[in-house]
């Protein structure tokens, strides 16, 4: 989440010059709000719609023609993609899940995972795994970059992708009690060269901890082994990335093996192991206006450390990249 802020900063600085000093939406007023309604105002409101009669009548719902929810997610699209992905999940990556018991069967929780492969292969595996094993939807939080891409952005949101904005994460966890998956390394994880594999990069600025604290949701650290080898980055062009307005443009081992076109999308059949670690609970009140930066960073480092240790543990047990 913090990564997103970082990458966005140059752009917003540029825009900020155009904004007049007065041009921020009014905020303070919103806080001066009383709730509870009076019955007689309800009667007044209905005056121009006498045919409605009952003030507590439910609103006109209309007819929906799709099952797309307010996040843009469609269970139908998700099922379709799941059926296509299932053979890859089962026979190509042969995903093993451990520690599923750590994921709550209801209520919000934030899954925090390490991130790798030039086109990340870990997100779909984690989401598909939990959805098939536990029957709970998982919303994947990712860079706003996706949203800018035509077709890809729409497909991504139909399949449960949500922009990694703190407000989105809070709403998912706190108000809707959903599972959300986040990769605090962001592109630092996916763009790292192969020689740095399984070294968990900095976890942004601890924004994901703050959201979990505010939402009163536990964090479940997730360690993924295998994704690094599914599309290893050998070299990257900073100049091309700048020209194409992308965070990184890599040459992967897959390009060398499968050719430039197929290699962009085709993964190596590395054996996947996903381990869910015991939840990290916070002993702070939810919904506080702010949390101590040092506490946030301490928790952030603790989560990062636990994932790193789990990765070392899993790698020491791994005999083969391809067979586990």
């Amino acid at each position: 989440m913090a990564d997103q802020r970082k990458t966005g900063s140059t752009r917003s600085k540029k825009m900020a010059r155009d904004v007049p000093a007065t041009a921020t939406p009014v905020e303070d007023l919103a806080e001066i709000v009383a709730d509870a309604a009076t019955a007689n105002t309800q009667a007044l409101v209905r005056i121009n719609q006498p045919e409605l009669g009952d003030a507590d009548a439910p609103p006109a719902f209309g007819v929906r023609t799709t099952d797309i929810d307010h996040w843009g997610r469609s269970e139908k699209a998700r099922r379709l993609a799941g059926n296509l992905y299932e053979p890859f999940y089962k026979y190509y990556f042969r995903v093993d899940l451990e520690g599923l018991e750590h994921i709550p069967t209801e209520g919000g929780a934030l899954l925090v995972s390490n991130h790798s492969a030039a086109i990340p292969s870990d997100g779909p595996a984690i989401m598909h795994g939990i959805e098939t094993e536990l029957g709970r939807p998982v919303y994947g939080l990712a860079e706003y970059l996706f949203r800018r891409m035509p077709v890809i952005g729409t497909a991504w949101s139909r399949l449960g992708g949500v922009t990694a904005h703190p407000d989105n994460a809070y709403r998912l966890l706190r108000e809707e009690g959903q599972l959300a998956l986040v990769f605090p390394e962001g592109t630092k994880g996916t763009s790292k060269n192969f020689r740095d594999r399984y070294r968990v990069a900095r976890f942004g600025r601890g924004g994901f901890i703050e959201v979990a604290m505010r939402a009163g949701a536990p964090i479940i650290p997730v360690a993924v082994v295998g994704a690094e080898e599914s599309m290893p980055v050998l070299w990257q062009s900073k100049r091309l990335a700048k020209m194409m307005n992308l965070p990184y443009v890599p040459i992967t081992a897959n390009h060398l093996v499968f050719g430039p076109l197929l290699g962009t999308f085709m993964y190596f059949p590395a054996k996947f192991r996903i381990r869910f670690l015991p939840p990290v609970e916070f002993d702070v009140e939810p919904d506080l206006p702010r949390y101590s930066r040092s506490v946030l960073m301490e928790y952030s480092e603790r989560v990062r450390r636990s994932i790193q240790d789990a990765l070392y543990d899993m790698l020491s047990e791994r005999k083969s990249v391809w067979f586990g």
């Binding site: 752009r11 921020t24 919103a30 904005h165 407000d167 989105n168 709403r171």
Partner: peptide, 21 residues
Amino acid sequence: YGSNDKDPNMFRESAKRSTGP
């Protein structure tokens, strides 16, 4: 609130817009 790729899915009254007008 504007309309932007960096926006939250739903704006609260207190939310700030992502870019200038």
